[in-house]
């Protein structure tokens, strides 16, 4: 599967990263990076999903 526009990526962070990639390297190479962007976006999403925002007690910011 190939993607041509950032809008076709499901996660906001994926779209942001792809937009950045296209602005740095252009559309062709930016699109080549989509599998790697997607893999990293999963890591970023995993971090985001596991953070509670509770900053009052040490260690309780993780779900």
């Amino acid at each position: 599967m190939t993607f041509n526009t950032p809008e076709e990526l499901s996660q906001p962070i994926e779209r942001i990263m792809l937009q950045n990639a296209i602005s740095i390297w252009g559309e062709s190479y930016g699109n080549e990076l989509i599998p790697d962007i997607r893999a990293m976006a999963e890591n970023l999403q995993s971090l985001s999903d596991n953070l509670t925002g509770n900053e009052n007690e040490p260690g309780f910011f993780l779900r």
């Binding site: 990263m17 950045n20 990639a21 990076l33 790697d36 990293m40 970023l44």
Partner: peptide, 9 residues
């Protein structure tokens, strides 16, 4: 790829 993806985070 590590460097390029790192530049985007």
């Amino acid at each position: 790829k590590i460097i390029e993806v790192g530049m985007l985070i």
